[in-house]
Amino acid sequence: MYQRCKSLCLTSNLQSRYKSILSKIEAKERRNLLFEEEKKRQRTAVGRIEKIEVKYLSPVEEVTLIMNKCISTPMDCAKHISEGVSKVSAIAMVDGSPWDMNRPLLSNCELKLLNLLSPENKVVNTAFWRTCSFILGAVVDIAFKQDVTVHLHSFPVPVIKSGSFIYDVYLDLADWKPTDQEMRALSAQYVKLINKELPIERIEISENLALEMFQDNPIKMTQIPNIAKTNNNKIILYRIGDYIDISKGPMVGNSSLIGRCTIASVHKIPEKENLYRFQGMALPKGVILNQYAYGLLENRARKFNDTTWPVFSEENNEVEDTKVLGRN
């Protein structure tokens, strides 16, 4: 009896907390304004421009580029090399570590650019899958009418072998089961967004600024202090278009690198109040499968993906699995 009363009280508290004082549009506009102001502040803080040497390593040559410290990015380097390289490069390796294409370079370094068919496929595939989840959050964020409360929860660490990328979302809808038409509409929105060929920006901000930016989302407000605690009071944000979210990254540099895609299913997460798992699958741009083979991947992506939410490790800020769904 006590547990039942406790559960009812928690449900009531969640529903009252999840009523934002800002509309979806107002909250998004405010978040983008703060993002732009912080980006300009960080650019101004660079001060006098210093030069760095970037040794670009490719299978056929080694080129030394003179770039601007804390301003130039791997994408800028790629554009200096050739238009073709800049269009296909997904992520960079800077001194052997994964690096976002649109993240400024901080010192002299060795640079390697990876495309979606590079031999280092695990690094690239993980970034690709993470980006797909990130964009899925952007689609769900605009998919519902204003009178439906939507709060993005998070997306777990990418697990390629699971067969689907995912995003967990709080919806103020009890036992919602989307129709086939609604699923097709979600897929259409996803395709529309990636076809805009938008760059994916990255910025590091303080915990206080993150709390200010996400004050309309009580779930993120709970997560931010825990993330900051393991990351020297820093929160990493990504933006595509006007959509901003939290992720440790890295992600691919542009939505144009995503090819054929489907939002395959939506599952209500067991024992979690009004929390739904959106699942999808996608192919890198240029990878072509016949309808039968693609259909097999779609069917696999429709099955409930029981990948767990991440917990940040204090040692290395990587994610570790923690079972919250009670399924294997």
Rank of each mutant, 00 (worst) to 15 (best):
N108C: 04
S16M: 15
I49S: 15
W309Q: 02
D321C: 12
G241M: 10
I142M: 12
S162C: 01
D245Y: 02
V148S: 05
N299F: 00
T131I: 03
P270Q: 14
N316H: 10
S265K: 08
D306W: 08
Y18H: 09
A90K: 01
L211V: 12
I142D: 12
L106D: 10
K145R: 13
N102T: 12
S255N: 12
M213F: 13
I194A: 05
F128C: 02
Y56Q: 12
L8E: 14
S162D: 03
L136H: 09
K39V: 10
A27P: 01
S118M: 10
S107V: 01
K39R: 13
D180K: 15
P98L: 14
A293C: 05
S12F: 08
S23M: 03
R277D: 00
R41Q: 14
R31W: 00
A228D: 08
N299W: 00
L10Q: 11
K177G: 13
W309G: 04
D245F: 02
L65K: 15
I236P: 03
L283N: 03
Y2R: 10
P225D: 05
R30L: 13
V266S: 04
I203F: 06
V139M: 11
E204M: 00
I166F: 00
I203S: 09
N290W: 06
E50C: 15
T126G: 13
R260N: 14
A301C: 07
Y167N: 10
V140C: 15
S86G: 12
L257P: 12
L136E: 02
N102P: 02
L275A: 05
R30S: 13
I205S: 11
V324R: 06
P74S: 11
S82N: 12
V46A: 00
Y170C: 01
E26S: 14
N32L: 07
S97D: 08
K285E: 13
A92N: 03
D175K: 01
C77I: 15
S72T: 06
S247P: 13
M93L: 13
F35A: 04
I135L: 12
L33P: 06
D95L: 09
Y238L: 06
I66M: 15
T149H: 05
T149I: 05
I194K: 14
R48K: 15
K229C: 10
L65M: 13
